[in-house]
Amino acid sequence: MAATLRRFHGLRLLKSAPALSLQQAKNLSSAGSWASGNKKLIGALGAITGGVGALIYALEQSVQASGGEVHSPAQLWNHKGLFDALDHQSVRRGYEVYKQVCSACHSMQYIAYRNLVGVTHTEAEAKAEAEQITVKDGPDDTGNYYTRPGKLSDYFPSPYPNEEAARAANNGAYPPDLSYIVSARKGGEDYIFSLLTGYHDAPAGVVLREGQYFNPYFPGGAISMAQVLYNEVIEYEDGTPPTQSQLAKDVATFLKWTSEPEHDDRKQLLIKVIGILGFLTVISYYIKRHKWSSLKSRKIVFVPKEK
């Protein structure tokens, strides 16, 4: 009698099991549909983002492609790497080129002789350089202006008193100030180098006005600056052979320095930052693992009530 009742009860238990598994299957299917919807959304977002990125890139390229000048090729500068400093011997030679060639037309109004100290010249050398110029100063205690030799705090002299005088002397063209020219031009020192060494005969069909020359790296091609760098236009103090490309490289390096005087300091700071942040990252990783160890190593066990 009791055995029969137990068997009947067991039969009911067996019957209820399929219903439970059916409900679980429903839950799974609805969860699956939710997940697949989310996947579609994420996929669509990804595709749209990729498309927009490609469109922006294509527009950028098309704008560059339609320019009116040749793009300067990338040269292998000493300071090109992430941790590479400027070649200060080249900067010093570049200063010589600027002083003897470029300064006839171009000003350098934001560089003083004191900026050369510790970079290209010693203090005594920089003072000697400064004393070669004549500076209008004053007024003195009787109210008169006077001229004196330059000193370290004086800025490089300008060849023209103002822009109008510069334009009048250069057939309407203005020789730009060279202090920040490398930062001001797309391509930077590559552009400067290519411009100085890229003079070419004008192609057929191109008409140049008087006082203009052809340079394919200059926008439009017609440039008012004649070619000024030839082999041996100056003699280097350190005996380097003054070929045209050497002169152009050195003056471009010098102009890189005048545009970014903090260049070497910035690269040095990067080295320090990498060292310090690396150390701190290791420490913070350890602390994170330590703090989260209890949470990440816990185990959850289900213990049913005694029936």
């Binding site: 040749v70 070419h200 057929a204 069909g205 191109v206």
Partner: peptide, 18 residues
């Protein structure tokens, strides 16, 4: 004008030199 031909030539030449 022959600007385009010159630009193509100069770009390739100086890229090779660089």
């Amino acid at each position: 004008t022959c600007m385009e031909e010159l630009f193509d030539f100069v770009a390739e030449l100086d890229h090779c030199v660089a």
